[in-house]
């Protein structure tokens, strides 16, 4: 379990992360969303003990992370641009990581060679494409058997086949060892099928942090054409309507609550039209956040 308590990180005069509190439970996959410059990377680097927090703290199982090898050997941070030593192959890098991380699993490293067959063991890493370098860094990271894997925008730049494979690799580790994954992206679509928890950052602050399934079940998009305009008044008293849009006699509503509850209430008025429409996660966010007073649309795409 990673606990972030009232974390603030200041660069020069700019507050890159401000008063963020967050708990990531063991074995969960946490997606951190936000536009460029929202503070995601800074938050991740502070979590990984790369940066020192100006205020607040980062704890791994109750132990501080910064300058604490005991905590840090259980976590691996993968930057958006992987770093390898000059003129090294993955095999040489593996020698380095093996010496650094006590939980390094040589067998696992060898096994994964199949999954990463496109990366020759002896080829110089800096000659590989960006996407392949990312895969290489993930390969090395997973071989270290970390309890916590922190990934800064890792999926961008991978082809769909590889993307699926990477996801599977992560899922295996999560299923097998309850590895915790923290993953950032500036695009919700990139990670919505991976995470169980998501948080959105904006201007250094964590605006919202939710379990994805709760979020999906929490609000619904419904089209209704009432027999009597007064019925609308009646249901708005009974249901929590986040958003309303009318096109002719048909209204589109975003309503909080379970489908069952909404159906029950609406059906009592026997409307002409009653449809539950599919709603993307983005839309859910947009309305959830709009409810909290944020215009979130530009933050997610």
């Amino acid at each position: 379990m990673i606990e972030i308590k009232q974390l603030t990180k200041i660069f020069e005069d700019e507050r890159a992360v401000e008063d963020v509190s967050l708990t990531v439970h063991k074995g969960s996959i946490f997606g951190l969303l936000g536009s460029n410059g929202a503070g995601k990377t800074t938050l991740l680097k502070t979590m990984a003990g790369v940066y020192r927090a100006d205020k607040g703290e980062v704890l791994l199982e109750g132990q501080p992370v910064y300058e604490n090898p005991q905590s840090k050997q259980r976590m691996i941070f993968l930057a958006d641009q992987p770093y390898f030593f000059a003129q090294t192959s993955i095999q040489q890098m593996a020698v380095f990581y093996r010496a650094i991380y006590p939980h390094w699993d040589e067998q696992r490293f060898q096994q994964m060679a199949q999954a990463f067959a496109s990366i020759p063991l002896k080829r110089k890493l800096h000659r590989l494409s960006k996407g392949m370098q990312r895969q290489a860094s993930l390969w090395l990271a997973l071989s270290c058997k970390p309890d916590i894997l922190i990934l800064d925008e890792p999926i961008d730049g991978l082809d769909p086949v590889m993307r699926r494979q990477v996801k599977n690799l992560l899922f295996q580790e999560v299923a097998d060892r309850e590895m915790t994954v923290v993953i950032s992206s500036h695009n919700l679509r990139e990670i919505e099928d991976m995470c169980d928890h998501v948080g959105i950052m904006h201007q250094g602050r964590l605006l919202i942090e939710k379990e994805l399934d709760d979020l999906k079940a929490a609000s619904h998009k419904i089209q209704i054409a009432f027999r009597d305009p007064r019925h609308e008044q009646a249901i708005s008293g009974l249901l929590d309507i986040l958003h309303k849009e009318e096109r002719g006699s048909v209204g589109t509503y975003i309503i909080k609550g379970t489908v069952e509850r909404i159906t029950e209430v609406v059906q009592t008025y026997q409307p002409y039209v009653f449809d539950v429409l599919p709603m993307t996660l983005e839309e859910i966010f947009i309305y959830e956040m709009g409810d909290a007073g944020y215009d979130v649309q530009p933050l997610l795409l």
Partner: peptide, 14 residues
């Protein structure tokens, strides 16, 4: 920058 971040994410003290 990249080297600094990598090295300081390793489980070794300064």
């Amino acid at each position: 920058k990249r080297a600094a971040e990598m090295f300081h994410s390793l489980p070794v003290r300064r």
